[in-house]
Nucleic acid binder design. Structure first.
Lengths: 256, 256
DNA sequence: AAAACACACTTGTGTAGACAAGTTCACCAA
DNA sequence: TTGGTGAACTTGTCTACACAAGTGTGTTTT
């Protein structure tokens, strides 16, 4: 641990400390079950006040990475940090994070008038313009997921100036200054229909892990509604929850 | 808003404030998009320091309930709070929270020696004793989920003194003083096999939403590994993530 | 009318201190 | 040897303060 290394960046000190602590956990410098150094020790080591140390540790507690109570330092609850927002929201970034080559084949991109189901999801009136896309996603050239996306027209029209076969829409939007702030994901399972089966190379009726996502911009406006169908033998979702750190996670009943 | 009402409980003030704020959001007293009162106003209203208000607001930020930055009060990001730990971990408690009658039919409960796959999941040696259970779960008498659970012997043996047809194992363990501290959930999709199909009343090969869960005790020991298979038309998982609040959530590749 | 500036107010960061609640270990008495 | 006690240390809660960074509004200048 280098003293004062944290001052090189302009980031708030408690952010830098939290990131350093996450790295210590991910690299097994602090292993699962290990006690962390005391707050006083961490403060002395980094030249910050106890309050700043506590602020950083609070973030880790909220992520469920550390647990503990009064009288003894926290212990590492688990060794795998949660995925950053961008890694989860962007297939391309995720692929790269696991050391695989992302690939995409666009089967269609079209401007359309929203039908009733789409309009409901997008918070639009029926008939308003949207941009829709069907795209196969691959890892190391192997089909993994079929993506059906519907974009609000204001952002979707930008996609006609972007080659959707070359990479990440998330990344492209971000580069265009579009703020992507929040995602809501509904996870269920469906049978592969004819299109799924044909593009993913599987039998009609095979089970697919479906993620329906609503993506929100910085003002809370809906940017995208999508339906991503994963081969379950290729990708899954992992969620951890603890009694101490509420996860933004719920099991919900279906009305049908 | 009643001044000083928060002092009636022994809970730390910042916890009480956070809970009050969550209720304000859930009850739409503060609606999505609304600005919250300023920190100074909240502090004056509740007779606490600004630091305590900020501590409570930090919890809400970590849960993704509120967003915002310098110069103006935070706004409500969404109106649905995350599910409490116990509600997510306990089918019975979840059912009750959505106003449905939970039901369960135990098809088998047995003490066995762990086979290699089970041993690996439980962190045991092959051949060590475990308690295994197959149970159908119902909502308002309608089959919803088939649960296959494997319990560490130390806790699983208690189930032979409990009627698993009457209710919640989570609740029973808690009442027996067993601390349940953390859950790890892997979500994928499978085809219904013969047992699934027979007990859930569906066709062989129909898609099921599978949740494989590892449940940890207070010392980090594994209490249970389970395989829950939901009818996707009955229940799904909803997850929200934001750029500001890291969720303990990841998409992960499968090796097969 | 539009742009720039000043000011009051807001949140975010960081420090410091006090005290309560809890843990651990050494020492002493039974 | 075992159990109890006290001290040192730990974390958790709460308050107070200072300053930076940002927002919104009113006033002045162009």
């Amino acid at each position: 641990m280098l003293k004062f290394v944290l001052q090189i960046s302009n980031e708030p000190m408690h952010h830098q400390l939290a990131e350093l602590f996450r790295q210590n956990i991910a690299s097994a410098t602090w292993s699962q079950g290990d006690c962390l150094p005391s707050e006083a020790e961490l403060g002395a080591a980094h030249g910050v006040s106890r309050g700043t140390v506590r602020h950083a540790l609070a973030s880790l507690r909220h992520e469920g990475l550390i647990v503990g109570g009064r009288g003894k330092p926290p212990t590492v609850a688990r060794s795998v940090p949660s995925q950053p927002f961008a890694t989860f929201m962007s297939f391309t970034e995720w692929a790269q994070s696991i050391g695989k080559a992302p690939g995409q084949q666009t089967y269609e991109i079209a401007r359309r008038r929203a039908k009733s189901e789409t309009a409901a999801c997008m918070g639009l009136a029926v008939g308003e313009p949207v941009v829709q896309l069907v795209r196969l996603r691959l890892l190391d050239e192997v089909p993994v997921m079929l993506e059906r996306g519907t974009f609000a027209f204001e952002v979707g029209q930008l996609l006609f100036e972007f080659d959707t076969d070359t990479g990440s829409i998330f990344g492209y939007f971000t580069a265009q200054g579009i703020e992507i702030s929040r995602g809501k994901h509904l996870i269920d399972a469906v049978s592969a229909d004819e299109i799924d089966a044909s593009l993913l190379g599987i039998e009609i009726g095979a089970p697919l892990l479906r993620e329906r996502r609503v993506t929100y911009g910085g003002e809370g406006q809906i940017l995208e509604c999508s339906d991503d169908r994963y081969l379950p033998q290729a990708a899954n979702f992992v969620i951890e929850n603890t009694r101490e750190a509420r996860a933004a996670l719920a099991r919900v009943p279906r009305n049908a």
